[in-house]
Each structure stands twice: as structure tokens, then as C-alpha cells.
């Protein structure tokens, strides 16, 4: 039986998939996962999950997005935009810069 293993490096971080182990049952799976996936990398916690309990949707059956350009959804698209086309935006950015400067000087 195959168990998928997810490792969390530090408290509060996500558990990330790191591989699997073969084991006859849950206890042995946890035991083996400790050595195989928790010994060499910094580890705070491991999740050990029976492979058949992991549900999957793949790109054959679902359209995951990304088919059209959705760059407008990303906040970073709006960095370093020339704001002169809209006076209120330019003003607002100027205010933010001054506030930041004042904070830095304080």
C-alpha cells in the first residue's frame, strides 16, 4: 500500500508533498515516513495519507484557467505605471511617497 507524504518545515508553513512510502498500515507508514522524508530536511510535521484517499482532478477533465490573458488580475501588473493620465492617481501616489518618506525620517 502506498502512502503519500507531505512535509511541513516550520510551524505555520504549508505541508508540501515530498514523496511517498510503501507500508502495510498507517502506523508503519508514519514510522517509515519519519526516516524517509523527515530525517534530512528540517521537519516540524508530516502528513501521511493513503494514496487512494487523495482525490484528483486533472487537466484532461477540467479547464484550469490560464487560457486567456488575465494579467489584469495581478496586483503587480500595476507597479511602475505612468499615472499621469489620471491626476487623482498621480496625486495619491505622490501622497503615499511623501508619507513613506516622512515615516522613514521619523
Amino acid at each position: 500500500m502506498i502512502w503519500e507524504v507531505f512535509r511541513q518545515a516550520k510551524p505555520g508553513k504549508y505541508h508540501q508533498h515530498c514523496g511517498n512510502v510503501h507500508a502495510p498500515d498507517r502506523e508503519m507508514a508514519k514510522l517509515f515516513a519519519q526516516i524517509q522524508h523527515g530525517r534530512r530536511m528540517q521537519t516540524n510535521s508530516l502528513w501521511v495519507v493513503p494514496q487512494e484517499e487523495v482525490s484528483e482532478v486533472d487537466s484532461d477533465e477540467a479547464a484550469f484557467g490560464g487560457a486567456t490573458d488575465k494579467a489584469y488580475r495581478w496586483a503587480m501588473t500595476y507597479n511602475r505605471v505612468d499615472a499621469s493620465f489620471a491626476a487623482e492617481v498621480e496625486e495619491s501616489e505622490e501622497e503615499q511617497r511623501e508619507a513613506a518618506k516622512a515615516q522613514e525620517e521619523a
Binding site: H22, L31, F32
Partner: peptide
């Protein structure tokens, strides 16, 4: 008997 037990005993 298995790779996993091999690693465990080696450890």
C-alpha cells in the same frame, strides 16, 4: 524486506 525497512534499519 522493503526499501522502507532497509532505510529504517540503516538509520
Amino acid at each position: 524486506p522493503t526499501i522502507e525497512s532497509d532505510l529504517a534499519l540503516a538509520n
